[in-house]
């Protein structure tokens, strides 16, 4: 069991996380979901005992992570955002080094190394120097070092970052296999990755825990949430920066509960609206009456995406 109680972290005077509290049961696969800067990496680094929290406590496998980080580290495998690789080392030597650091004997390592190389599909490159490997292989070596000592808890920070679509699927399958024997925490801002891999989600936004539960539970808790994506271009005679006006217009539409920060896409500016009903007609009317060009209008995608936008949009609005 992993238990975080009122966990917080400040960098200088700036709050990066918390206070947040959550529990993760043994055998669960939990996804940390949040935008960049939401505090996911900070939370995971604290759980991996890489960072000390500014406040609160963590308990991992019954051991206090603040008082006895040394003991906790024995139970944890951590794959950070950038895999902690020694580029000059041969893959198998590096994994042996990682295993020895975690207290494994040579006999244990001999047996486990073959298993881990097979699990992570690294057998063919076991004798290669790490810097000669592709990004996908390096990510696998990073994962291999995290599981070499067969830890009870596995913490993976953006494990599919920078991978191509094929490698993403392979990594996802690998994590699926690891779920059978480990308690896994994964952070990501890729919604599909999280929804396909995790039993439960912890949604973070600006250091706060915005929601927790399964994808379905979150959606139910938040009410039936729909999403409208509207892409707009400034019409003739409109302001050069029409975004504030457009946002005000969209927020005023009956049925729209929140509007996330817009982004430029496809020759226009895209606004993502969280709504409680299908109000496409009202949205399109508001855009046209506001003398803006309506380029595209999309309605309701996945359940998780809606929930996420709604939760994160809520925290944006409150800030």
């Amino acid at each position: 069991m992993i238990r975080a109680t009122n966990l917080s972290k400040y960098y200088g005077g700036k709050r990066a996380l918390g206070p947040v509290s959550f529990e993760i049961a043994d055998g669960e696969t939990v996804g940390f979901l949040g935008l960049n800067g939401a505090g996911k990496t900070t939370a995971l680094r604290i759980l991996a005992c890489d960072l000390r929290p500014s406040g609160g406590s963590i308990e991992i496998g019954g051991v206090d992570g603040v008082a006895e980080p040394h003991e906790v580290r024995k139970k944890i495998g951590f794959l950070p955002e950038n895999p902690p690789l020694y580029q000059d080392m041969v893959v198998s030597d590096y994994l042996k080094f990682a295993g020895e650091l975690r207290g494994m004997t040579r006999e244990e390592l001999k047996k486990r190394l073959t298993e881990v190389l097979e699990i992570t599909d690294l057998t063919d490159v076991a004798s290669d120097i790490i810097h000669t490997l592709s990004h996908g292989y390096r990510q696998r070596v990073g994962l291999a070092q995290a599981i070499i000592h067969n830890p009870k808890f596995l913490i993976l920070d953006e494990p599919t970052r920078g991978l191509d679509p094929v490698q993403i699927v392979e990594m996802r399958n690998l994590i699926h296999d690891l779920k059978q024997s480990h308690t896994v925490l994964i952070s990501s801002h890729i919604l599909t990755e999280i929804s396909q891999t995790c039993d439960r989600l912890l949604i973070l936004g600006k250091g706060k825990l915005l929601g927790t539960g399964s994808e379905h539970e979150l959606a139910t808790k938040e009410g039936e949430i729909r999403q409208i994506t509207v892409t707009i271009r400034g019409g003739s005679g409109s302001d050069a920066d029409f975004r504030p006006t457009a946002r005000t217009l969209l927020e005023a539409v009956d049925g729209v509960s929140s509007v996330a920060d817009p982004y430029d896409y496809g020759g226009g500016t895209t606004f993502v609206l969280s709504t409680k009903r299908d109000c496409r007609a009202e949205v399109s009317r508001a855009v046209v009456e506001g003398k803006l060009d309506l380029i595209k209008l999309d309605y309701a995608r996945s359940e998780l995406e809606n929930t996420f936008i709604r939760l994160v949009g809520g925290v944006d609005a409150s800030n």
């Binding site: 040394h70 580290r73 950070p80 902690p84 650091l101």
Partner: peptide
């Protein structure tokens, strides 16, 4: 190079 994380998160 980010490799310090390996040492920092090992029981060392």
């Amino acid at each position: 190079n980010h490799s310090l994380v390996l040492l920092n998160t090992s029981p060392v």
